[in-house]
Design a protein around this nucleic acid. Structure first.
Lengths: 238, 238
DNA sequence: CAAATAGTGTCTGTTAGACACTATACT
DNA sequence: AGTATAGTGTCTAACAGACACTATTTG
C-alpha cells in the first residue's frame, strides 16, 4: 500500500437501504448486529469494500448476499464521512439505495456472517423518529427515504416496486404508500396511460384479488431500469 | 490505525467542480497538475481528506483554498470508487459541487501547492467531449453539470450564480446559459414574481449596463441557501 | 424623437383534479 | 340483482407559452 505512510488511512464500507412495499407499508431491510460495536442494534446491511473491488460492485455484492437477488434497482445515495461515525476508527461509508418488488422479498436469505444476522423487513415510518439504529444509519435511512420519495416524482422508479407485470392499481398503491397520499384512481389511470415511456399495456389481464370486480389490465415498464419522466407525477391530489 | 492490518486500506480525496456563469458561458475552475500522475493535465481542484477531518469540512477547506470564498453553495455530488481510477493506488474520491457568483471569482487565489498550480476558469462545454482531464474528472464534470442543470429546475440554485442583489434579466441569463435555451423575458418575469419563496424585490433598481433603457428592479433571494421550489421552472420555451 | 431595455395584458392550448358515469367481473 | 373494482367523460381552474403592447430610461 503506497499511501499507508504518506496519507491518512481510511476504511471504506458500503451500506444499503433496501426498500419494498408490502401490506400498504414502506419497508426496509435491516440486520441485527451480532458483534461490537452496536451489538444487538438494528443496522442497514453493508460491509467493507474489497482491496481491488469497485465500490459499486461491493454494493451489488452486499445486496446479493442479503437478498439473493440480482438486477434490481441499485444506486448510490451519498457518502457519510464524519470522523467519529464509527467508534472503531476512520470509516467512510458510501450509502446506496435499492428497491425490490414484494415478490422478490421472499428469496431473502439470511446472511451467515459473524457481525450480522437475522435480516428482516421493518416498517420505515417508526424508524425515522423512534428506535435508534446503529452508527448514523437513521440519518442514512432518512436521506434514502427522501430520495425515494423524490425519485417517484421525476423518474420511473415506482415500477421497481412492482413485479414485471402489474396493474395500475398496484402502481398507484406504491405512490400512495410511499408518499402517504391518496390518488383519484381514474385520474391516475389517465396520467399513466398518457405519460410517454413509462408503462405499456401487455394485453393480459388479472382478476381482482378480492374475487369480485372487473379484471385489471396488466402493464409492464416501457424500458428496464430507472429513467427520467417527461412529465412528473405530481404529489398533490386529495 | 486499527484497520491497516484488518481491512483494505484506502485514501480518500475530495474533488470539487466549482461553477460560475460569465460572458454568457458556464465555466468551471480547473487547475493544471504540477506533478505526477497526469502532470500538466487539467484537473478539478481537490485533495486528501485529513486524518480527523470531516469529509464535508475537507471540501470546504479545498474550496476556500482555491477560491478564497466561504459561505457559497457547496454540496456533495457523488463518490467515485473504481479500483483503477488513480494510478498511484486505491483512492476513493468524494466529488462535490460548488457555485459562485461571477463577482466572487475575482477573489480567486492561486494555490501554492506542489501538485497543483495555475487555477483558471474554463468554458464547460468543450470539456465535456473534447480535451481530456486528469483521472476520471471528465466523468465527474459531466455528472456535476447534469446535477446543476437539474437543480435549476427544482430548486433556487440559480440565485447562487448571481450576486446578493440581481435583476431578473441576470437571473434569466443564468438559466439560458446553463440550459442553452432562450426564455421569453416577459413570461420569465411573471414566473419569478409569482413563484413563492424564490425572489423578493428589494425596492432598489439598477440602470441598464448598456446605458439605455428602463432601469431594472433589483431582487434578492428570499432565503439564503438552496431550497426546493414549490413550482418547478420548466425547461421548455422557444 | 428614436432606440433600447423592463415590465404588463391578453389569448390559447394543455393539464391536474373533482366527480359523475360506464364497463366488466363474481356471488 | 347487488356489489366491487376498472376505466372513461366532462367540467373547471390554473398555468405555460406566444406575442402585442405599455413604461421608463438615455442620446
Amino acid at each position: 500500500m503506497v499511501y499507508t505512510s504518506e496519507y491518512p488511512v481510511f476504511a471504506v464500507t458500503v451500506d444499503i437501504a433496501i426498500f419494498t412495499v408490502a401490506d400498504d407499508e414502506l419497508r426496509v431491510l435491516l440486520v441485527k448486529r451480532g458483534g461490537a460495536p452496536f451489538k444487538g442494534r438494528l443496522a442497514l446491511p453493508g460491509g467493507f469494500v474489497g482491496e481491488s473491488e469497485d465500490v459499486e460492485a461491493a454494493a451489488k455484492r452486499e445486496l446479493r448476499e442479503e437478498t439473493g437477488v440480482r438486477n434490481v434497482v441499485l444506486e448510490q445515495l451519498r457518502t457519510y464521512g464524519a470522523p467519529d461515525r464509527d467508534p472503531r476508527g476512520r470509516v467512510v461509508s458510501v450509502a446506496h439505495l435499492a428497491v425490490l418488488p414484494e415478490q422478490a422479498t421472499a428469496q431473502q436469505t439470511i446472511r451467515a456472517g459473524s457481525d450480522a444476522a437475522e435480516a428482516d423487513w421493518y416498517a420505515v415510518e417508526p424508524l425515522l423518529t423512534g428506535r435508534r439504529l446503529a452508527f448514523d444509519h437513521r440519518q442514512i435511512l432518512r436521506d434514502a427515504v427522501e430520495r425515494v420519495r423524490s425519485k417517484l416524482e421525476y423518474t420511473t422508479l415506482a415500477t421497481a416496486f412492482v413485479g414485471a407485470e402489474f396493474t395500475l392499481t398496484e402502481l398507484r398503491r406504491v405512490y400512495e404508500v410511499v408518499w402517504g397520499t391518496e390518488f383519484d384512481a381514474g385520474n391516475f389511470q389517465r396520467k399513466m396511460r398518457g405519460t410517454e415511456n413509462f408503462v405499456v399495456e401487455t394485453g393480459n389481464s388479472r382478476p381482482s384479488p378480492v374475487g369480485r370486480g372487473r379484471p385489471a389490465a396488466l402493464f409492464r415498464a416501457r424500458n428496464p431500469g430507472v429513467h427520467p419522466l417527461s412529465t412528473p407525477i405530481t404529489r398533490a391530489s386529495s
